[in-house]
């Protein structure tokens, strides 16, 4: 047990980190590979699994419902990412100015992000409730935009859009904080120099602000895509009528026929799509 001081320190370092590494290895890394294994098997909840080759994948790809879920996921991820980033940018630019009551506004704006999903979905459902909700009151009684009251959050046509707006509402605080902290780090001399050269507000934004925050915007968009593609609660708890890939997987594996093999296959396909996208994105947009 002797050795040099450095070796001793190294041994201790390994020992201190090992509980974390073991837990992450056993409960994150191993399950990912086990999931891959399950996707090639016909899986019973208890008892033996049988090797079935690619037939889970074939069944999933041949299922029209999978492609509908795929399309919903693509729309959801695209519009939530664009919406959250743009709205977050606007809020960050606004909050970058000083005004009275800013501290209070700062706290209030974080509420959607920190409140548990389960505690806010009911308020949203009430807002869109056909009998009591304000939304239908405005749309039907006040403005006459629809002929009769209906449940927007349950309608197949609109539910996805409600889920998208909900996600923007829930996640814009994080985006705006990230952008704001980068905005505040921009060297003010750049703006002064631009003013001397006769640049107006919009020009300053496009020639100084935007290039300065390009990298942080790129990272936020990437994180948003990863998170929103894996999102479950934000959609599932809000509405029963939107099926993105995670929700489709959940239904496949834990309801009805409990087909965990196919569930695994869907989640592996989803993961493969995500990884390929990330690699492409990191190379093209973040230029690493």
């Amino acid at each position: 047990m002797k050795g040099t001081l450095q070796q001793q320190q190294a041994r201790l370092g390994v020992r201190l980190i090992s509980p974390a590494v073991i837990i992450i290895g056993l409960l994150i890394i191993y399950p990912v590979f086990y999931n891959l294994y399950l996707s090639f098997h016909s899986v019973k909840l208890s008892g033996e699994s049988r090797f079935v080759g690619l037939s889970n994948y074939a069944a999933v790809i041949g299922d029209a419902e999978f492609w509908r879920a795929f399309l919903s996921t693509a729309l959801y991820v695209f519009f939530t990412t664009v919406g959250t980033t743009l709205f977050g940018l606007i809020v960050a630019l606004a909050m970058n100015k000083e005004f009275p009551g800013q501290g209070l506004v700062r706290s209030l704006l974080l509420l959607p992000y920190i409140a548990p999903v389960i505690s806010v979905v009911f308020a949203w459902q009430f807002f869109f409730d056909p009998v009591n909700g304000i939304f239908m009151h405005l749309m039907v009684d006040k403005w006459g935009l629809y002929a009769e009251r209906f449940n927007l959050i349950r309608s197949p046509q609109y539910a996805l859009w409600v889920a998208i707006i909900f996600s923007i509402w829930k996640n814009f605080p994080f985006t705006y904080l990230m952008i704001l902290s980068r905005l505040q780090a921009i060297d003010q001399n750049l703006y002064e120099a631009a003013e001397i050269d006769g640049c107006t507000g919009i020009k300053k934004f496009f020639y100084i602000t935007l290039p300065e925050i390009y990298f942080v915007l790129g990272s936020i968009v990437l994180m948003r895509i990863i998170w929103n593609m894996n999102k479950f609660e934000d959609i599932y708890l809000l509405t029963d009528n939107v099926k993105t890939l995670p929700i489709y997987t959940y239904f496949k594996a834990f309801t009805g026929a409990l087909d965990m093999g196919q569930g695994s296959a869907i989640s592996i396909i989803q993961f493969a799509i995500l990884i390929s996208f990330i690699i492409l994105y990191v190379k093209k947009v973040l230029k690493w």
Binding site: I17, I28, Y34, M229, T249
Partner: peptide
Amino acid sequence: EYKGRKVIQRGVLFVYMFGGILLLIP
């Protein structure tokens, strides 16, 4: 200082690419 320290340090956040649903079934 020890071997593999940097890998662990950087890999820590990488695991969040695996969404909840991917790990749920296994």
